[in-house]
């Protein structure tokens, strides 16, 4: 998985997105691991067009379908999750998170950080904790103690 290079392709295509999930936790300083990159993409027609261009460069296909179907603008314009595999690793491109929460909805709970010269927008740790609390899945609950402890350590430093 070449996370930084994957992010570089998205930024080069000027895709508007927020890094969420485990990679957002790592960017925030939490010592957790994950095996995919989750992004919440903006669903305007212009941005979805740019996202499809980036995904084409990345040779993205749906990993949930053995026919190796490529994501289209139609697939990415809705609220659902596109679970993809690319030549640089596994990528989940989410139309919404939580209960129909969009890119625009979370912007106030994000920050932009410089990663190898790339301006990367990621979900704030406190919001990420709320997202995982709401998701309530075993894998989300398991990581919550580390995320909460990281938040406490950051406030104390």
């Amino acid at each position: 998985m070449q996370l930084v290079e994957l992010l570089r392709v998205l930024v080069r295509h000027e895709v508007e997105f927020v890094v969420v999930g485990g990679v957002a936790a790592v960017i925030n300083g939490a010592p957790v691991t994950t095996f995919d990159l989750d992004i919440l993409h903006r669903r305007t027609p212009e941005n979805v067009h740019r996202l499809v261009a980036a995904l084409t460069e990345l040779d993205a296909t749906f990993r949930t379908d053995s026919r190796k179907i490529r994501p289209t603008e139609s697939h990415l314009s809705g609220p659902g999750h596109a679970l993809l595999v690319t030549k640089l690793g596994v990528l989940d491109s989410l139309g919404t998170i939580e209960t129909n929460t969009t890119y625009e909805d979370v912007l106030d709970d994000t920050f932009v950080t410089n990663i190898d010269g790339l301006p990367i927008r990621a979900l704030e740790l406190a919001r990420l904790i709320r997202v995982k609390e709401q998701a309530g899945r075993a894998k989300d609950i398991a990581v919550l103690p580390v995320l909460r402890a990281t938040l406490v350590e950051r406030k104390g430093s």
Binding site: V23, V26, A30, P31, D116, P145
Partner: peptide
């Protein structure tokens, strides 16, 4: 909760790029 705070402090001492490089190594 049994969370290793030294690991968190070490992670927080890294830059975001360094954190992602560590994650890439795990992957």
């Amino acid at each position: 909760d049994g969370v290793d705070l030294t690991l968190i402090r070490w992670s927080l001492s890294l830059s975001p790029l360094e954190r992602l490089r560590v994650l890439e190594g795990h992957m």
